[in-house]
Simulated scan of single mutants.
Amino acid sequence: MITLLFFAGLKEAIGDDQIKMPAVGMTLGEVKEKVWAEYSIEQVKSCMVAVNEEFAPEETTIQEGDTIAFIPPVSGG
Rank of each mutant, 00 (worst) to 15 (best):
V31K: 02
W36I: 09
F70M: 06
I71R: 07
D16K: 15
I14D: 00
E33P: 05
V74M: 14
Y39M: 06
S40K: 14
F70N: 00
I68G: 05
E58Y: 08
E42H: 12
L5T: 00
G15T: 07
I71P: 13
A23V: 00
P22R: 04
V74G: 09
T3E: 10
E33W: 08
E38K: 14
E54I: 12
D66A: 04
V49A: 11
I41V: 15
F6V: 03
G76K: 02
I19D: 00
I62V: 11
W36M: 12
K34L: 13
K20M: 10
M26V: 05
Q63K: 12
K32Y: 02
G15W: 08
S46W: 13
M1Q: 07
W36G: 01
T60H: 15
E12D: 13
A37T: 15
T67Y: 06
V49H: 06
E30A: 12
A69R: 00
E58I: 03
I14R: 01
F6E: 00
P72M: 09
I2T: 02
G29M: 03
I41E: 08
P72H: 05
M21D: 04
G9F: 08
Y39N: 05
E53G: 09
E59W: 04
D17N: 13
M48K: 15
M48T: 13
A50F: 01
Q63N: 10
M1N: 08
L10V: 02
V44I: 15
S46F: 14
I62W: 07
W36P: 01
I71V: 13
K34A: 14
C47G: 11
I41F: 01
D66L: 04
P72S: 09
W36R: 12
P72F: 04
T60S: 14
P73I: 03
F70D: 00
V44Q: 01
G15L: 08
T67D: 05
V35R: 02
I71S: 10
K32P: 02
S75D: 09
L10T: 00
G15V: 07
P57I: 02
S75C: 11
M21N: 05
S46R: 14
I14E: 00
I62H: 08
G9R: 14
G77Y: 12
K34T: 14
L10K: 01
V51P: 11
D66Q: 05
G25I: 01
E58G: 11
